[in-house]
Amino acid sequence: MQWQPALVEGRLIRRYKRFLADVRLGNGEVVTAHCPNTGAMTGCAPEGAKVWLSPSTDPRRKTPFTWEMVEAESGDLVCIHSARANALVDEALGTRVIAELGDYPQWRREYRLPSGSRVDFYFPEQSQLPECLMEVKAVTLHQGAGRGAFPDAVSQRASRHVNELQQAVEQGQRAVLLFAVLHQGVRSVSPAAEIDPHYAESLCRAVEAGVEVLAYRAELGQDDIRLVEALPFSLP
């Protein structure tokens, strides 16, 4: 995925009210950017950190920039825009980077289930392939020594998604949870049991029931971002 238009570099002054961040641009101007991440962003919002923003020309926007990337405390690049994960997965499916799903010729995004909730990706049944549901979660939490974890804050919504995937498996469907790793320092993924034990327990039950878990690492740059390789996943 190309960054279009080109990103604008600055320095983080502070993140506040969850969705706002003040940034000093290279010309000295201070702007307020939208922060598209509802999590704790542990290690990803240090004061003075180098950040990259995407500009908007929409006159209806209250903030002219969106915060996309940061140079974390570890020195690694991190994409903090969690909604980018789905677009990256969509692109990776098209280029057959995600080998475990490479045989599906088509898929739909934001598919509404009979229950009324939505799933990130839906793969229709094919001749030799079962119907498949997939949820995507962005990983930005780095716990040191290459260990990544999800979530970085208690998330009832994430637990609900895991439970829905388990229900799908119990009803005879295939279900996949894919962790899109948006932190360049992460080399493995596991549930953050110490942060959200309920989520970790739900995921353990789901895996035991047959939910598949994948993790894929993104390669980040100032020009583009893309998923490039699978990473190991482990339960606590």
Rank of each mutant, 00 (worst) to 15 (best):
G28R: 12
S159E: 14
V154Q: 09
A45I: 00
L77S: 12
S117C: 01
E91F: 14
G28I: 14
L231W: 07
G10L: 00
G210H: 03
L182F: 12
E229T: 14
Q2I: 00
F179T: 05
S82Q: 06
M41V: 00
G116L: 06
Q222Y: 08
F233Y: 10
P232A: 05
T63W: 12
R84G: 08
L231Q: 09
R96M: 05
M134C: 14
R187L: 10
L93P: 04
R96C: 02
Q184K: 09
L227R: 07
V181C: 02
P124I: 05
R112I: 12
V213R: 02
P124H: 06
G172H: 07
T42F: 10
R18C: 01
R84L: 13
L165D: 00
Q222D: 13
A85S: 09
D224S: 14
A6L: 02
A49N: 06
D120Q: 07
A49M: 05
N163C: 13
E68F: 02
A153I: 11
A153L: 04
E131Q: 12
R109A: 14
I195D: 06
V189S: 03
Q184S: 08
Q171H: 03
Q184I: 08
E29D: 08
P130Y: 04
P55H: 03
G94N: 13
M41D: 03
D22M: 09
A175L: 11
L231K: 02
S82P: 07
D223P: 06
E71N: 03
W52T: 06
L141S: 04
L165H: 04
D120Y: 01
R217V: 15
Q143A: 15
Q4L: 10
E131N: 08
Q126I: 12
G48V: 11
A180G: 08
L182P: 02
P59E: 03
L88V: 04
P64E: 05
D223Y: 11
A218K: 02
R18M: 07
R157T: 04
L178P: 00
W67E: 05
Q166V: 02
R24I: 12
E219Y: 11
K50R: 11
G172L: 10
E164N: 12
A149Q: 00
V70M: 01
R61H: 13
R60Y: 01
E9I: 10
G172N: 07
N86C: 11
A153Q: 05
I13H: 09
A206N: 12
A72H: 11
E9G: 05
S54E: 10
Y216K: 13
P64L: 01
Y216P: 11
E212F: 12
F233R: 06
A85G: 09
V162G: 00
P232N: 06
S202I: 05
L53I: 01
A92T: 08
E170Q: 15
G28E: 14
V186L: 07
P36T: 15
W3D: 03
S82T: 03
A45M: 00
L141K: 04
G48H: 13
Q156N: 04
A218V: 07
R15T: 03
D152C: 05
S74H: 14
D224F: 15
I195N: 06
K137Y: 08
E100A: 15
G28H: 14
V211K: 04
Q184M: 06
D224R: 15
R112H: 13
V139Q: 01
L7Q: 06
A33I: 08
A49P: 04
L235W: 08
E170C: 15
S82Y: 10
I13Y: 00
N163D: 14
